[in-house]
């Protein structure tokens, strides 16, 4: 039982929560850029929040379901369709066997996540199914999905025998899980390095996500930061969301596939709760920043975590009830 890539996307990769515990060897965690969308898509299908999913960028691939499956999409809305019938994000969808999933138009967001009930049958590398492109390991053959790839599914039995596409009648509310305003930051160890005017600029100005931004990092186009002195730094371990100041005064935000160590001054950090919102912004879009305290950052993350946990339970109950009723109705 599997799904087959019948048309290749620009960069569709398998991702999960990431590969932790190997950063001392220079092996970065990777994982879904938008962990909320991954968790929501998984929850809608009854999976655990961190089950491996396909992270899609537009134009995304076209997928043939060899077997019937319950799927869900979350994150970016790429105008998904099953057998050319539009299917929404944030709802569980019953896809009949031999159906084709395609993506027609990027309506909103940068990354869409496809979860399949019971997940994909993959061999983890160093404890994770996330695709590590640089060393060509993890995920599916350690690379982005190609035309002709057959990704095995863990669900081996045909769930529902009738061949009807079904969009299940409930929606995961994700609006409050994302910050739609300015991206919130905490000061970094070199916050005092740029001059006062540059610091003000960071908090009041507008920055554009540069074209060559990717899973490694988001480069920002904006007014150059001025520093009073040149700071030579010894390389040190860094983390996702760190904002590095490059020698030319421009900024780069470290994202999922960032290097484990870096020597550029860290002037600020995106709060963890806002990384998913940032991950859904596209190159060319403008972003603003606002400062919060560490305690606020933590509280926002905790609220998000609790909401996701609640959503997961609620989704699982709804789906199980629906499956039971369906079974009862049939017999």
């Amino acid at each position: 039982m599997s799904i087959t890539v019948i048309q290749q996307g620009i960069s569709d990769t398998i991702q999960d929560t990431g590969r932790y515990g190997y950063q001392h060897l220079g092996i970065n965690p990777g994982g879904a850029m938008d962990r909320i969308a991954m968790a929501v898509a998984n929850s809608l299908t009854g999976n655990s929040a961190g089950e491996a999913v396909i992270e899609l960028h537009f134009p995304a691939g076209r997928y043939l379901f060899e077997t019937a499956a319950i799927i869900a999409l979350s994150g970016a809305d790429f105008g998904a369709a099953v057998n050319n019938i539009p299917v929404p994000v944030n709802k569980p969808v019953y896809v009949p066997a031999a159906a084709t999933l395609s993506f027609t138009r990027p309506h909103a967001g940068a990354r869409c996540y496809l979860a399949v009930r019971h997940g994909f049958a993959l061999t983890p590398w160093l404890g994770s199914c996330s695709t590590h492109l640089k060393v060509a390991m993890g995920g599916f053959a350690g690379r982005a999905l190609h035309k002709g790839d057959r990704i095995a599914l863990n669900n081996t039995q045909l769930l529902l025998p009738d061949a009807q596409l079904k969009i299940l009648p409930w929606t995961a509310g994700t609006q409050s899980l994302y910050n739609h305003a300015a991206i919130r930051i905490l000061p970094g160890s070199c916050w005092q390095l740029p001059d006062e005017a540059s610091r003000q600029q960071l908090l009041t100005g507008s920055f554009r996500i540069a074209q060559h931004s990717d899973r490694m990092g988001f480069r920002l186009n904006g007014p150059a930061m001025h520093t009073l002195r040149k700071e030579e730094q010894l390389s040190a371990g860094v983390c996702r969301g760190a904002i590095q100041l490059l020698p030319d005064g421009q900024l780069i935000i470290l994202m999922a596939d960032h290097q484990t160590t870096g020597g550029y001054p860290l002037i600020a950090h995106i709060i963890t709760a806002d990384i998913p919102a940032l991950a859904q912004r596209q190159p060319g879009q403008s972003i603003q920043f606002s400062a919060v305290t560490g305690e606020t950052a933590e509280e926002l993350l905790w609220q998000q975590e609790k909401q996701l946990r609640y959503l997961q339970h609620a989704c699982r109950l709804r789906l199980e009830k629906w499956l039971l009723q369906y079974e009862a109705h049939r017999s």
Binding site: Y20, G21, Q23, H24, L234, S235, A236, V238, C239, L301
Partner: peptide, 17 residues
């Protein structure tokens, strides 16, 4: 989740949740 030693620093990454 991770401990990253470097020249003169140790980065300790943890799981807030």
């Amino acid at each position: 989740t991770d401990l990253i030693p470097a020249y003169a620093s140790l980065t300790i990454v943890f799981n807030t949740a």
